[in-house]
């Protein structure tokens, strides 16, 4: 029994081992221990979605998961999505639609958008709005984000 926990996990394709305080949450671990500051901390109570990362293929709130719980997990952050090309189409569409302003919600928004697209989501605006409704954006008004996700889906179809 210890207030520190040894963990081994894979982050953005690289093996990581660390000894972390048991209370350290995943997003703080990613940001502070691994210097992956692309994931953001917006509310620390699971509502805003800025810390959303991909854990074993699922989008997950990084503030509602302990680093200790991520033992043996495979994690992808916004940096990983850029490096492995998974977010290429979304990046292009978000840029063209100006679907970000301050960019603080963007890492979570991309993770959620990717979850929708990879889950076979269609270019149905209402469905997209519902899907990203756990990700708070104070800047855009959301329309451009919906547009961008539609663009990616429609381009993939043609």
């Amino acid at each position: 029994m210890s207030r520190f926990v040894d963990i081994k996990l894979r982050v953005n394709g690289e093996d990581v081992s660390a000894t972390v305080p048991s209370r350290l949450n995943l997003v703080d671990f990613l940001r502070n221990d691994l210097c992956l500051t692309g994931s953001h901390v917006g509310c620390e109570h699971g509502v805003c979605g800025a810390c959303t990362v991909i854990v074993d293929g699922d989008s997950v709130r990084g503030c509602l998961m302990l680093a200790a719980q991520a033992n043996r997990a495979d994690i992808t952050t916004i940096e990983g999505l850029a490096d492995n090309g998974q977010s290429d189409a979304l990046q292009a569409a978000f840029t063209n639609r100006n679907a970000l302003q301050c960019g603080f919600c963007t890492p979570g928004m991309l993770a959620s958008a990717l979850g929708y697209i990879d889950g076979g989501g269609t270019a149905d605006r209402d469905a997209i709005r519902k899907h990203i409704s756990g990700n708070y954006c104070r800047c855009t008004g959301y329309q451009s984000i919906v547009d961008a996700i539609c663009d990616v889906i429609e381009e993939a179809r043609t």
Partner: peptide
Amino acid sequence: PRADAARLLQGRGKFVDDVT
């Protein structure tokens, strides 16, 4: 389109809490 969008879309922004 904004030239700096790519930076934010790749997680390369630099917000205050990103600075150590």
